[in-house]
Each structure stands twice: as C-alpha cells, then as structure tokens.
Design a protein around this nucleic acid. Structure first.
Lengths: 140, 140
DNA sequence: CTCCATATTGCAATTTAATCTCAGTTACAG
DNA sequence: CTGTAACTGAGATTAAATTGCAATATGGAG
C-alpha cells in the first residue's frame, strides 16, 4: 500500500515519517484528481491540519521520487500533480478552449515507447503524452 | 518564410512590426536549439540589441500563437521554447541523469494521435510526447 | 523506556520567472 | 504628414517555490 511504500522509502534514505508527511500523503491519496501544492495546502488547513506550506512543498519532491505522484502539467505558472494510479499509466488530452482534461490509456503507445527507445539506445523509464486540441463541447 | 508569416499575423491583428519584434524573431530563427526567455534576452543584449526583457516576454506568446515556436518543456521553474521546424514535428527523449535531449520523429505516433482522438471525440491539434529515462552514456 | 543526534517543522524572509505600470516613443493607415 | 493606438524600456510588482533558522519531534542506541 502507498503509505507503506513511502515509509520504506523514508527509512532507506534515513528520513523520518512525520505527522506532517503522513497527513500530506493521506490527503493526496483520498483526493480524486489533479492538485497543485496550494490546493493541497488549503485543503489540509481547512481540515484543521497545522501543516505549513513549506512542508507541502518539501514533501512533494519526495513523493515524486518514490513514484507515488507525478507532475502532470503546468497551468499558468504553477505545477499540477496527480496520484499515480496503481493499475496503469495514462496520458492526457487537454482542451485548449475550456481546459478540460481527458485521461486515456493506449497500450499501443506503451509499446511504441519501447520501440522508439530501442532505436535510440535510450533506456525509457516513463513517458508523458499530451494531446492539445478541442473537446467535444468546444467543437473546434 | 517565417518573417513574412509573422508580419501578416501582426497586420491581421492590428499589431505592429517593431524593430524589437523583428530582432527577437530573427535571433530565434538563427538559433539551432531550445531556448528560454532569459537565454534569448542575454543573447540579444550580447549582440548589442537594446531589446528589454519585457519585450522578449511579450513577444514570445505572439510567436507561439502564430505557430512559429512552441513550448517544449519546463526545466526547474522556467519554460523552454523551440522553433517549430518547417518539415515535421518531433518529440523528445530526456535523460534524467545528464539532461541530454534526443529528438525523434515517429510516424506511428502521429497516426496514433488521430486514432486516440477519434475514440474520445476530441479534435487533436498537436501533441507532445516526452520520454524520460537514461541515455546511452548514462546507462541506467 | 529514556536519551539524544539528527532530521523536520513553521514562520517569515528570500529568490526568481514572469507580468505589469506608465511615461515617453514609434509604426502605419489615411 | 499627422493622429492615434500600439509599443517600448526600466523598474516595480506578483506569486510560486525555496531557504534560513530556532524550536521541535522522530526513532535507533543503549
């Protein structure tokens, strides 16, 4: 389970599992969608947590390093993150008009990554495909 | 040619082709690789241009809008742009160790975009695939 | 369980990419 | 040419993200 994974990671690195780190991860885990650091901070505050903005910003890179979350996009001037779902990776389609984000998964794409990397002698770890365009509603 | 395209765009929008805008586009056109706004600014300054940082930042969105350049990645906390090559779109492989960027083109990927979009009723305009991993030198 | 070196925290100050303000300047349609 | 709306540079400003530091908490050693 995610919390266990995080705990192990911290121990291995000689870091400590604090109440703050636990609260932050917990909040991310129960969240459904994208979030940005400020989001997360406000959410925690609202719930009565005493976690500081600094701790949120300091914990996020750790969670990225363990592979529990990933940066999915940059809107305006701030980063957005998302919990990495346990089952499978997915990519995004982003509507250039309304900003709607559609998630999709393509097995072909997963295979394609391997193929492309082989050709360039590159050891691919992960990828992110972003398709920009117009959603159904915004026509185009 | 690019400068002509930019000129037409400006005219259509009721904007003006200034010495600064011309210098900025010119510098981008003669550059080979990625650049970030600060890069561009310093480069112009070095060459004796009087262009201000503000003008660089103000011109970039225009060039993105005409389709002459595109944002290709975010390193740390600043955006990187790249001239859109006339011939064909390409994507990037980025080494997580040394930061090396390998460009590649995959016709399969181009077709795949159409397919995926059709399934979701999304009108895809462009995409960007980023594969993160380790280059030949950095092994993995 | 207690001790304590070391990691961590909150707060506020700081950094830094990017944006904005505004008075003076310039492009360009007519 | 001329008028006017767009543009510019310089520096102030914004806001996301980071950092310094004194106080505090964690968790392994004993």
């Amino acid at each position: 389970m995610e919390k266990q994974k995080f705990r192990e990671f911290l121990t291995t690195k000689g870091l400590k599992l604090t109440k703050e780190r636990d609260e932050i991860l917990h909040e991310i885990l129960i969240m459904k969608k994208h979030f940005d650091p400020e989001d997360l901070f406000v959410r925690l505050k609202t719930k009565g947590s005493k976690v500081s903005r600094a701790s949120v910003y300091r914990t996020i890179p750790l969670l990225v390093e363990v592979g529990l979350i990933e940066e999915v996009e940059r809107v305006d001037r701030h980063a957005h993150y998302e919990k990495i779902s346990e089952d499978r990776h997915h990519d995004h389609m982003i509507c250039m008009k309304c900003g709607k984000v559609i998630e999709f998964y393509s097995p072909t794409l997963e295979m394609l990554q391997k193929e492309i990397c082989q050709k360039e002698n590159f050891k691919g770890v992960r990828h992110s495909l972003e398709i920009l365009g117009y959603c159904e509603k915004c026509g185009g």
